[in-house]
């Protein structure tokens, strides 16, 4: 049987992380193709229901990326994302979803390599974890 290929939905903030992911591409860095991204204006604009919907629709993992602490374009939206993701991780656990399936990372606009590392790292983890059981 072919190796399990997880699907990761990444929510990237417009100012840092989306630009960082673009830079990784522009610099021809390579990451595993298991990630598909959605652009948000700010990681703080991540509605928790987006994450639940993603898992409900078949994602094996959800990645949230925002600006480095202190660098948020909207002053402190990334801290709000941090609070929401922490809460969500606890809630997901109660639903039987492993907390590693939802990850938050800081990826700055010049951090193409960081984006690649985060995606590859999470993909590898999810491959070990297997598909999300529904």
């Amino acid at each position: 049987m072919a190796e399990f290929e997880p699907t990761i939905v990444a929510f990237l903030c417009n100012w840092c992380s989306y630009a960082g992911a673009d830079l990784a591409g522009t610099s021809r860095m390579k990451c595993l193709p298991n990630v598909v991204s959605i652009r948000l204006m700010c990681s703080g604009g991540l509605d928790p229901t987006y994450v639940l919907k993603a898992f409900g629709e078949g994602a094996d993992g959800v990645l949230v990326c925002g600006c480095n602490p202190g660098d948020c374009h909207y002053i402190g939206g990334n801290y709000k994302a941090l609070r929401r993701v922490s809460l969500l991780q606890r809630m997901l656990q109660q639903l039987g979803i492993e907390p590693q399936r939802l990850q938050l990372h800081w990826v700055c606009a010049s951090c193409g390599d960081e984006f690649v590392d985060v995606v590859d790292g999470m993909t590898t983890q999810l491959k070990k974890l297997g598909p999300l059981k529904r």
């Binding site: 948000l40 204006m41 700010c42 703080g44 604009g45 991540l46 509605d47 909207y74 709000k80 929401r84």
Partner: peptide
């Protein structure tokens, strides 16, 4: 500025 923090909350 349209960050969406309010909408998410």
């Amino acid at each position: 500025k349209g960050c969406g923090v309010c909408a998410a909350a």
